[in-house]
Design a protein around this nucleic acid. Sequence first.
DNA 1: AATCATATGTTGAAAAACCGACATTTCAGC
DNA 2: GCTGAAATGTCGGTTTTTCAACATATGATT
Lengths: 264, 264
Amino acid sequence: MKAAHFLMDESPKKKTLRQLDLMGFLEKSGYASVEELTTRFSVTSQTIRRDIADLAMQGRVRRHHGGVALTSPIDAQTYRQRRVERFTIKHRIARRVAELVPDGASVFLDAGSTCEAVAEALCERKELKVVTYSLRAAVILTDRTDFTIAVPGGFVKNVAGSVMGESMSEFIRRFRFDTAIIAVSGIDEDGAMGDDDQNEVSIVRTAIGQARSTLLATDSSKFYRTALVHLGNVTEVDDLVTDAKPEGALQHTLAASQVNLHIA
Amino acid sequence: MKAAHFLMDESPKKKTLRQLDLMGFLEKSGYASVEELTTRFSVTSQTIRRDIADLAMQGRVRRHHGGVALTSPIDAQTYRQRRVERFTIKHRIARRVAELVPDGASVFLDAGSTCEAVAEALCERKELKVVTYSLRAAVILTDRTDFTIAVPGGFVKNVAGSVMGESMSEFIRRFRFDTAIIAVSGIDEDGAMGDDDQNEVSIVRTAIGQARSTLLATDSSKFYRTALVHLGNVTEVDDLVTDAKPEGALQHTLAASQVNLHIA
DNA sequence: AATCATATGTTGAAAAACCGACATTTCAGC
DNA sequence: GCTGAAATGTCGGTTTTTCAACATATGATT
């Protein structure tokens, strides 16, 4: 009973997840106040402090009165390196995605960092019509292109910079897409795709329903990760763009389906 | 006592020097606590706080309980650029505007470059509720704060990064504002304010109607310029923040009204 | 169901940091 | 030397943060 315990269990607990997320946030800004973090994660200051205490124990952050900072904050070099690293993976995928989108197409674009990279890559196309609920993607596209771009209205979710509101699906339903470009938080071995936010899932499902074809863009770290909310099955998508071929069960699931696999 | 000549190694302003040094230190570590800084510079915490207050006023650092952090994780280039930007007219005006907005307020924020500068300055406030149809402003605020932010849905107007749609006014009408922060393209000598886009004017008018007070932020180049679409009269606004006192007729128009004039 | 472990929320008192007002120092210019 | 402005220090009262101890929830194991 206990032997199996430390051999197998790799599933990240909530706490660990949040701490990981917290680190990600820190790496962007270098410093974060406890207050910011409490609202960002919707937990008590005490919980944040416990997270911080853990991370500080591991020497990964520096504690301060009122917040946390990175220990070896954004050493210009590592920072650049990280950027480059992300550039290669996410941007390789993004470029591949952009190649699959014809000029003049009407596109739905999901939120999340991968989709922001896709937005950048889409700038190379011409005369696209894009609907997205990612503010950042919208800004990237308006700044660099003259595409027709639409965003739904609502409240902005801080973590992702995505828009959330009551009538999102209604808004999306007003459009038809040649392609829905989506991203997910995890894909199970049986091909179950999932995300961490119920609302986002609902939006994406609506978009898929309005689209002639669905394109899933995700890096291989998402394989075999289970996400909170079920979004659908990977066999429903028409194209899957990723950076490495999935191994094992997932590979078979895909092979047995109609999914076009693109390795960037 | 004159004996302490070994302390006299400072030539220009001590204060300025230390602040410069402090910035240098910050750029390495991204964050520094007040305590660290007191020992590093051998001065009182109060002095450090005054330095910090100065720098924060200039928008060069973010204050936190216990210390300071850089506003943005530095990229030498952007940093230099920011530094210049900080002292432009728009940013001076923006800072003044932010001072007039109390923590916790609900505000409407117009679109345009001045309002984007205001968005940056508003990051210093706390727990604001912001409704804006400027995508860029929305992104700035979501990236740097945990405010509640809402944007209306619609198509994005490329040049300005503002959102336009049928039901904009309806969306705006769902909110009440403590302050509507607006910008205009021109102000006539008789106080007539105008903008160049019929839709934007309609949105702004609606917002003003929902606001307890209206704050006009505009640089002095807008004085005596006539814009296409009439928006209202400057006497309707409660506060006018600008960079230079208007001369001539407009000055009298303002003096005869209830407008509070703030020169940044 | 009972039990245990883990994660999170709550509370109240102690500690730390803040701010304003005023005192003191420094130094340039008369 | 005297004076005034700028910079810094000191002091107290206030606000914010922290921490420890306890309570509650959730979930897995038996």
